[in-house]
């Protein structure tokens, strides 16, 4: 891979081409807010938190899906980016029913951490209060759609790492839902291997083991990336 030069927040950085802005930022300790990104999974730019401004491009682009190019002038820290990041996190909270006080992931939730990172102290948009199902049909795990932010980390880990393809996505807009098989109860799934990778990949309290109570959930999402690396060694 040829080596190219990019400028991130004015800092001159040499990097190989063919990598994303997020990868370059991570390699150079430049902080970048992410939520749908998980090491080991393909990035899809779903959460719109890793926004970057690129000179000559009018709109904001997602750092996880945009590849670097030679002499690219990138900014990750402008007021415009911070404003949009806060709006995005607020909309996550307003879209479904996130009640931190009763959530298993309270205190160990990537959505909460994103809120703290963008300085979110209240939500300026009307809450939608959609009626969402809680699927408890699986013997060990629960899928609570109230707390889902549609990052699709569960869908991607199930397809790309486990290879089972149990999880999918149904509908569009605010009717969008994660589904098991063809929208059937998770406990009746013929594809789920009960591996629990989606439990660890989920950034919020949407997928959790039945054995935990409020605020007791601990997850280990890094496991996914480690697993992918280990499997490469076997090939």
């Amino acid at each position: 891979m040829p080596v190219i030069t990019v400028y991130i927040n004015g800092q001159k950085i040499s990097t190989e081409s063919g990598v994303t802005i997020l990868e370059v930022c991570k390699a150079n300790n430049i902080p970048m807010l992410t939520l749908c990104h998980l090491k080991g999974l393909h990035d899809i730019g779903a959460c719109r938190l890793c926004l970057v401004e690129i000179e000559g491009v009018n709109r904001l682009l997602s750092g996880c899906t945009t590849q670097v190019a030679d002499n690219m002038m990138i900014r990750t820290d402008t007021d415009r980016i911070k404003r949009y990041q806060r709006i995005t996190v607020e909309l996550f909270f307003a879209e479904r029913n996130h009640v931190c006080a009763v959530c298993v992931a309270n205190g160990n939730c990537e959505l909460q951490q994103a809120g703290y990172a963008v300085g979110l102290d209240h939500i300026r948009y009307p809450f939608l209060y959609p009626e969402c199902n809680v699927d408890t049909s699986h013997p060990w795990f629960v899928m609570d759609h109230n707390r889902c932010i549609m990052c699709t980390r569960c869908v991607r880990v199930c397809t790309q790492v486990e290879g089972a393809g149990n999880w999918g996505v149904m509908n569009r807009g605010h009717d969008v839902r994660i589904i098991s098989d063809f929208n059937t109860p998770w406990g009746e799934s013929s594809t789920c291997t009960d591996c629990g990778k989606c439990v660890h990949a989920c950034p919020t309290g949407a997928i959790w083991p039945k054995a935990v109570a409020q605020g007791q959930l601990t997850k280990y999402p890094e496991m996914i990336g480690e697993l992918v690396e280990k499997r490469k060694l076997l090939q």
């Binding site: 909270f93 029913n97 009640v99 931190c100 006080a101 009763v102 102290d121 209240h122 939500i123 809450f127």
Partner: peptide, 8 residues
């Protein structure tokens, strides 16, 4: 601030 449990 965000109705919390009362809003459930």
């Amino acid at each position: 601030v965000m109705t919390n449990i009362t809003g459930m």
